[in-house]
Amino acid sequence: MTSALAWIPVALSADIEAGTSAGTLVNGEERVVWRDDKGEIHVWEDRCPHRGMRMSFGFVRGDHIACLYHGWRYDTSGQCRYIPAHPDLKVPQTIKVPTFAATERAGIVWMAPEGADPAELSTLHEAAEPVRSLFLDMPAEATLLAVTAAPPEGYRPIESGTGLVTFQGNEMTVLIAAQPRDAGRTALHITAAGNTSATLRRDLILWATDLRNRVESQMVEAA
């Protein structure tokens, strides 16, 4: 069983298309998730060292990502390689964006401190189909408790690790991985492995959306 994971889920793999980037929040810190044209996934600090612009506002060209402000281009190691305003300059090695370990497992993009071992995720299915990411304005632990308390009809919870809920039913394994965005906000990344179909995944989307609406309306009533 996985426990005390170093790996934090940050997106559904399907939602980060090749040649695109997206910003996200992890424990209150801004991160950029981007995929190069070869399909490799990258997670970095979401900040251009030049003027502090968010890299997620920028654009991916080949295996480089460029800042929207002044077009500074960074390779997949985070190293700045090209500054358009100084085309002949050999860019100093010190101009580098801090990077994280990034991997994909069970249809989800995961990040961890550099050097973390992707084998920690090996108990999860290798591949899975996307259901949806669900964004809730409540803390991660409370969100997962709410999920476990109201499984979708026809599914039962099975043992899983910290930050994860797993359901089995309809010849499928449904993985729900919690991303703590900040102290009061959570993203749940939901995928399904096994005998999946668009109909079953649609039912799971509707379940998840309804769960969010019910949980948040309970919060409003409690407030």
Binding site: L12, D15, T20, A22, G23, T24, L25, R132, S133, F135
Partner: peptide
Amino acid sequence: IDHDEYPALRR
């Protein structure tokens, strides 16, 4: 309002 909470709209 950032785009991060709306992955389907980004695509």
